[in-house]
């Protein structure tokens, strides 16, 4: 902005004293400009004052993929991938994974503070009552092909929910219940429907209340049992996966939700845009790809895993993704179950391969020198396999289920 940018003659910058400003000389004109620096950034709009002539539009910043552009101020999630740090509202992820359930973490992300018992009870109730969806939602989800990709189903059905709640786009109305809470609450129901449709299982009303890991696993796995009792290790694994993926600050899907939400569309449509982002092979699809790779028992798998990590999101994510450390206990919980399931199972070669890939990743000299490790997709892939999730299912169930809370990660 011109008020913040003072045009000065070249060489006219006062060198005495340190200031939080950046002096830039435009060699086309010899003019020097002083841009304000705050929070380690300069405002891209300040560049517009840099012109060759009065009718010049002014300089712009060119930044494909916003690689070095901050799009918001946020007090929600802090990530330092290189240092292995992930914090939600200042709480380290390892503490949250050990002591909390997903719904508490969702409350923390949205409200900024951990809930006390009374707040948690009210929150759980609020989310639970909004997990129910109109019967018509079931009808149109049944219209998908038997092998429809769950992410495609989730994307479409979430967008369709906006037609059930025409008032949801009145986002500025003072309301006792923000419209985004029901939008979050319905996500696990839709994800469970998509999961069960994909398996060819019937959905029933009892599968629609899934705010906790116990009910979540029931949503996904209940078959003919009169009373479904989930394996506590399975519950824990789901909980940890949901918490780990609850937010990851300004990634592709969050950016999509924010960009589309900036039009003041309803939360369902904005979240559908985020689902679409996660549908992409470079985003949530990375996990899918990893699972497929694990199951493919060809001899090239190990080296491809390495390439995947080197070029893929895992590497960009932070070289030693902080989420990874928290997956290990959950993975250990599941090792026994995995082994049991895999014994005599068609994925036995994949199990051997995983062991080989892990071994290779430990021993490779480039692995440690280049700070390359099996990433969160690798280890969560192992857990999904133990959970009997087909390769295209986890993205839908995990990412959207978990990230509904965090996808609006913004300035709040």
């Amino acid at each position: 902005m011109s008020t913040e940018t003072q045009k000065q003659e070249a060489g006219g910058v006062d060198g005495a004293g340190k200031r939080d400003t950046l002096s830039v000389t435009d060699n086309r004109t010899g003019q020097t400009y002083e841009l304000e620096i705050s929070d380690g950034t300069v405002r891209a709009m300040d560049l517009r004052a840099i012109k060759v002539s009065d009718d010049d539009f002014g300089l712009m910043a060119y930044d494909p993929a916003f690689t070095n552009t901050a799009s918001t101020r946020s007090e929600i999630t802090y990530i330092d991938g290189a240092a292995g740090i992930l914090e939600y509202r200042g709480y380290p992820i390892e503490q949250l994974c050990r002591g909390l359930h997903y719904l508490e973490v969702a409350y923390l992300l949205i409200h900024g503070e951990l809930p006390n018992q009374e707040q948690l009870d009210a929150w759980t109730h609020e989310i639970t009552i909004h997990t129910f969806v109109h019967e018509n939602v079931k009808s149109f989800m049944q219209g998908f092909r038997y092998d429809a990709h769950p992410m495609g189903m989730l994307l479409a059905s979430d967008g369709a929910l906006s037609t059930f709640y025409p008032d949801a786009n009145k986002i500025k109305d003072e309301s006792p219940l923000p419209a985004d809470h029901p939008a979050d609450a319905k996500m696990p129901t839709l994800a469970a429907f998509a999961f069960r449709h994909n398996m060819g299982s019937r959905t029933c009303i009892r599968t629609t209340t899934c705010p906790t890991p116990a009910t979540s696993s029931r949503c996904m796995y209940k078959m003919t049992e009169l009373k479904y009792q989930p394996d506590p290790r399975l519950e824990r694994a789901l909980d940890v996966l949901f918490i780990l993926h609850a937010d990851h600050e300004q990634n592709c899907s969050t950016n999509a939700v924010r960009a589309v939400g900036s039009s003041q569309v309803d939360p369902y449509s904005a979240i559908a845009a985020g689902v679409a982002g996660l549908y992409g092979p470079l985003h949530g699809g990375a996990n899918e790809q990893c699972l497929r790779m694990l199951r493919r028992s060809d001899a090239r798998t190990t080296s491809r895993l390495h390439r995947r990590r080197e070029g893929g999101q895992g590497a960009a994510d932070g070289l030693r993704p902080p989420r990874l450390q928290e997956l290990r206990p959950a993975r250990a919980d599941h090792q026994e179950g995995t082994r049991r399931r895999l014994r005599g199972h068609r994925h036995e070669p994949a199990a051997r391969h995983r062991a080989r890939a892990r071994e290779a990743s430990r021993s490779r000299t480039t692995t440690s020198s280049r700070k390359l490790y099996p990433n969160v997709d690798f280890y969560s892939g192992l857990i999904y396999e133990a959970l009997d999730c087909r390769s295209d299912v986890p993205g839908a169930v995990r990412d959207r289920r978990a990230r509904a809370a965090g996808s609006r990660s913004g300035s709040r």
Binding site: P64, T69, Q95, L100, L114, Q250, C252, A316
Partner: peptide, 30 residues
């Protein structure tokens, strides 16, 4: 967009203004 070698997955940065390194408090003490 796909053929443009400068394009990649869109992931903006953020200015983090929140708290750092808080300690977990058990629910009974909140």
């Amino acid at each position: 967009m796909i053929d443009d070698s400068e394009q990649k997955i869109a992931r903006p940065r953020q200015i983090y203004t929140g708290e750092r390194e808080r300690s977990f408090v058990p629910i009974a003490d909140r």
